[in-house]
Structures are given as structure tokens and as C-alpha cells.
Amino acid sequence: MSRLYFTKDHEWLRVDGDVAVCGISDHAQHALGDIVYVELPEAGAKYAQGDQAAVVESAKAASEVYAPAGGEIVEVNGTLVNDPSLVNNAAMTDGWFFKLKLSDAGELGSLMDEAAYDAYVKSL
């Protein structure tokens, strides 16, 4: 049974065991507009929570994507390289960025669940 978390910086991660699939939220893709390029990390790279792990470019500007929790990259979504618009069309599913092997599941405690994130977005 997977659990979904969000950061205040609009990343999401879906945790299943000690692996988390990460992406940017639907709110984020909508705010960015047309996404034209995604720069992904390399498999094997290690990040602490909050490190810059990827870059997403909209037609207007580049934005950093941070690792929502610490860990090692075990897989990246290569489909985004040729079809970055997938982030616009399916931010929460097929538009995922990378999979992280979590180094400390305790870090998840600092994140929001979906209801809390929805309330956070409404407050912006």
C-alpha cells in the first residue's frame, strides 16, 4: 500500500516500502505552464532532503526540483526527455521524474499528506 506525500515546494512522492516515486504536483505544472525540457539526475546519484535533483523548464523559465527526501536515485523517467509535456498532461502519474531509495523514512514526517497539501495550495 503506497502513501502519497507533498512538499511546500510542490514536489510529490509516493512511497512504497523504501522506494519513493517523485514528481511535481499538478498545481506546480499548471503554474509553470507548457513544460519544454526536464533535466533529470543520474541513477546512482545521492541527495540529501532538499538538495536540487532536477530542473524543469517551462516556455518562460527554468525551475529547480528538490529531492523531497534524502536517498539514492534508482531510476529516472527517460520518457520525459523526448516528451516533457507528459508533466503537463500527467503530473501525478506518467509524468514522474525519478525514483529514490529512501535513506531515512523518518524524513517523511516533515511532509504533507494530500489533504494538507490541498489546503496549503488554497492558502497561497
Binding site: A28, A61, A62, S63, E64, V65, Y66
Partner: peptide, 8 residues
């Protein structure tokens, strides 16, 4: 993520 250009 970040990068939204906040303009005064």
C-alpha cells in the same frame, strides 16, 4: 521546486 519570478 522554485524559480517563480517574484516581481515587485
Amino acid at each position: 521546486m522554485s524559480g517563480a519570478e517574484a516581481q515587485k
